[in-house]
Design a protein around this nucleic acid. Structure first.
Lengths: 211, 211
DNA sequence: GGGTGTGAATCTGTTCACAGCT
DNA sequence: AGCTGTGAACAGATTCACACCC
C-alpha cells in the first residue's frame, strides 16, 4: 500500500513525539493529545494511524510504546544507507554536528569539498575527498545518497559528478539552485530562501488585510 | 485576492529563476521552459501566472524582465522587516553567511545566544545579546520576526521570552521541537530531520516495489 | 506552428460525523 | 462517558483540453 507524502511526514513527527513521550509518565495517549501537541487535527491523526490496522483502544487511546514501535516498523529500512556529504562549509559542518546525523538509519561514509585546507583531512573522523574523486569513492563505498550543501553555482557540477558514479539513488539538497537529475533519482530539497520568503509574504498579506 | 501557499512557493521559485535569466541572452521565455527548469508542469506555470492578468504573449511566451518585475511586485513588502537570529551556533552562523541573508527585504538587527564567549560581542557586525534580554531588545528595535536556530530543548524557552516582547509576528524555526505560539503569530519550520527521513522512507519503498 | 489563458475534470488530501467498542 | 476507526462529504490543487492569439 502506498502512503502519501503528507502522511509520511506526519508519521515521522508522531514517531519523534512518541520517543520523547516514552520517557514521560503516561503510557497512553489519545489522538487529540497528539494532535494538540503537533498542531494537527485529531481526526487527521486517527486517519493516519488507522492505515495500518487497529492499534488504538476505543475509550482509552494509543499505547505509547506499542504505537512508537509500530510506526518505527513502518518507517524502518532493511538496511543502513551510505551517505556522502558534499560541501563542508558552515552549513555542512552545522549538519554534521546536528543530532539528526547521529542516526542508525544511515552512515556518512565520505565528505567532499574543493577547499585544499579540507581535502585529505579527517573531519569529525570522516575522510574528506576532493569533489573530483566522488564517482570513484561513491562506487567503492556503495554510496547511494548525497547530501548537497554547496553554493548554488556549484550544485549542478557536483551533482553531475555524483551521477557519473551510477550508484546515486537519492539527493537531499540544501542549495537553492534547481538541479537536473536523471529520472529515478529521488530528490528532496530544504530551501531556506523559499521558507523565509513565504513567511515574509504571508506576514505582509496579513498586515494588508488588517489595515 | 488570496494566493494559495503552493502558488506562493512556486512564484518565489519563478522569481529566483527569472533573476538569473535576466543576465542570460534570451529576453523571452515560455511556460514550458520555466517548468522544465524547475520540474513543474507547463500548465501549472501558466495557471500560476494567469492569476494576475494576462502578461504572456500567445505564440511567444513571457517577457523575462517584465515578468520578473511583475512577480517582484506581488512578493514585495511595503517595509523592511527587522529580524532577530536566536542561536549563533554552527547553524546560525551558516545562515548568517548564506546569501539569502543579504536581502533587501529584511535586516538582522540583533543576535541572541547564551554562550558567554559570544554574548556582548559583535558577530559579522551585529551585536549579540544574552537571550534573557530579548524582550527588551526586540521592543527597542521593533523586531517582529525571529529566526530560531537553537537546540530543540531550548526552543520553547527562547520563544516564550520572545513572545513576552509583544512585538513578535512571525517565526522561522530550524529546530525539530514542536513549539507552542499564541494564535496570530505565523510559523514556518525547516525540518532537516523530517526531510531526511522522508527521503530514506521513499527510497526504501522504491526498492521494495522493485524487488 | 507555437504558445497563452482558462473552464472543466480529475486527483489528492482533509474534515466531518457517527457507529461501535471499552 | 470517552475515544477509535471509517465511509462520506468537502476543500484544495493539479492536470487536461481546447479556444483563441501571434
Amino acid at each position: 500500500m502506498r502512503i502519501a507524502e503528507p502522511t509520511v511526514e506526519r508519521l515521522i513527527k508522531y514517531h519523534r513525539l512518541l520517543i520523547s513521550m516514552k520517557q514521560g509518565n503516561s503510557s497512553v495517549v489519545s489522538s487529540r493529545q497528539i494532535g494538540d501537541m503537533l498542531g494537527i487535527k485529531a481526526s487527521q491523526v486517527r486517519k493516519d494511524l488507522s492505515y495500518f490496522g487497529e492499534i488504538g483502544k476505543p475509550g482509552v487511546g494509543y499505547h505509547v510504546e506499542r504505537l512508537c514501535e509500530h510506526i518505527e516498523q513502518i518507517l524502518s529500512s532493511p538496511k543502513v544507507w551510505s551517505v556522502a556529504l558534499v560541501g563542508v562549509g558552515n552549513l555542512g559542518m552545522a549538519l554534521m554536528g546536528h543530532s539528526v546525523f547521529q542516526s542508525y538509519k544511515f552512515e556518512v561514509k565520505a565528505l567532499f569539498d574543493v577547499d585544499p585546507e579540507k581535502v585529505g583531512q579527517n573531519i569529525m573522523n570522516i575522510h574528506c575527498w576532493h569533489i573530483d574523486d566522488i564517482a570513484r569513492v561513491m562506487k567503492e563505498n556503495d554510496i547511494e545518497v548525497v547530501i548537497l550543501a554547496v553554493p548554488a553555482v556549484e550544485a549542478q557540477t557536483c551533482i553531475d559528478k555524483a551521477i557519473s558514479s551510477n550508484t546515486l539513488k537519492g539527493v537531499l539538497s540544501f542549495t537553492q539552485a534547481p538541479v537536473i537529475l536523471p529520472k529515478g533519482v529521488l530528490f528532496y530539497a530544504v530551501d531556506v530562501f523559499v521558507e523565509l520568503e513565504k513567511l515574509l509574504f504571508f506576514l505582509k498579506e496579513k498586515e494588508r488585510n488588517i489595515s
